[in-house]
Design a protein around this nucleic acid. Sequence first.
DNA 1: CAAATATACGTAGTCAACTACATAAATTAA
DNA 2: TTAATTTATGTAGTTGACTACGTATATTTG
Lengths: 159, 159
Amino acid sequence: MEQNVIDASGLLAISTRLQRLSDQIRKDGLLIYKAFGIDFQPKWFPVLYTLYKKSTMSVVSLSDEIGYAHPSTISLLKELEKEKLIRSTKDKIDTRKRLIELTEKGKELLANMEPVWEVIIKATAEITNTENNLMKAINEVEATLKEKSFLHRAEAYRK
Amino acid sequence: MEQNVIDASGLLAISTRLQRLSDQIRKDGLLIYKAFGIDFQPKWFPVLYTLYKKSTMSVVSLSDEIGYAHPSTISLLKELEKEKLIRSTKDKIDTRKRLIELTEKGKELLANMEPVWEVIIKATAEITNTENNLMKAINEVEATLKEKSFLHRAEAYRK
DNA sequence: CAAATATACGTAGTCAACTACATAAATTAA
DNA sequence: TTAATTTATGTAGTTGACTACGTATATTTG
C-alpha cells in the first residue's frame, strides 16, 4: 500500500485520520439519501433518531443523549423547526424546560427513511466488517478513555 | 455498558462517532503539548511533520500529501509563517509555485517535540490496543472504501 | 424563607475544516 | 504561435461543531 507521510506517522496523526474518515463517510451518507430521493441531512440524524426512539425530551437532555454541547443542539433544532420536522412545548412542571417532539411530518419522514437505513446499515457492515471491526474499536477506545484520559496516560509516561 | 440511543443506532451514526472521538483526542493532544511546555497546536501537525520529512514542497503537493483542500493548507501556512516556523520561496522553474520549507526555528521546535511524540505514541498505543485495534481498523476501512465507495455499495443493496 | 447554588436555555462569537470562484502561469493542441 | 486547457495559488464565504457568558427558574442550605 502506498503511504503518505501522515499515514506513515501512524498513531501521531490519529485525530486527523479519524476526522478524514468521518468526513468521507458523512459525504457519502448525504449522497445516499439524495440517491434515494430523501431530503435529509446526515447532521440531523442524531437529533431526529433520538426523538424517534424517545418521543419527547428537553433541550439539555437531548444534547446529553447525543453527546453534543447544548448550543449545537439548539441550532439544529432551529433548523428542524424551520423544516417543520419538530415542534416544542413548555414543560408545565419545570417552566425552564422546552420539550421537543417530532411533528407528523417528522414522523412520516423517519418512517420513510427506515428502508434507507437498512441499506446504510448493510453497506456499513460490509465496510467495517474487516479483521478489526471499526465500530467495536471505537466502542472499546471510548470505554478505555473513560477509565483514564489520554492526557493522564501520556503524563504517566513522562520522566 | 450503558447505551444511549445514538450508540445503540450503531452503524448509522458512525460518522458522528468518529468525529466525536477525533475531537476528544485532539483536545487532549493540545493539553499534552501544553503539559510538556511546548507551544504547539495539534492542527499544525500534518503540515509541519510533512515538511520535517520531505523538506520542501509546493502548496498543492503539500495539500495532497496531508489530504486537505488547498485553501485549508494556505490558512495553516499563513499562521505558521506568522509564527516564523516556515518560510516560502518562489520556484525558479515554475513561477506559479510557492515552495514551503521549515525555518531554523521550525526545525528546532520539531526536534524538541520528538520526546513528546514518543509519549504520545505510547499513550495512543495503550488506548488503541484493545481487542479490535483502532488504527488497523481505520487502515482496513480506508482500503475497503478505496476499492468500492460507500455510496456504490449502498446502491448495490437497493431494490 | 431568604440567600446561595445549580440547572436550563439562549446568544454571540470562534474554530478548523470545507466549496466556489477568480486569476495567472504553464502546457498542449490546432 | 495563437488558442484552449490544465495547473497553482489565492480570496470569500459556508458549515457544523465548539466555548464563554448571560438570564431566568428551581433547588438546596443556613
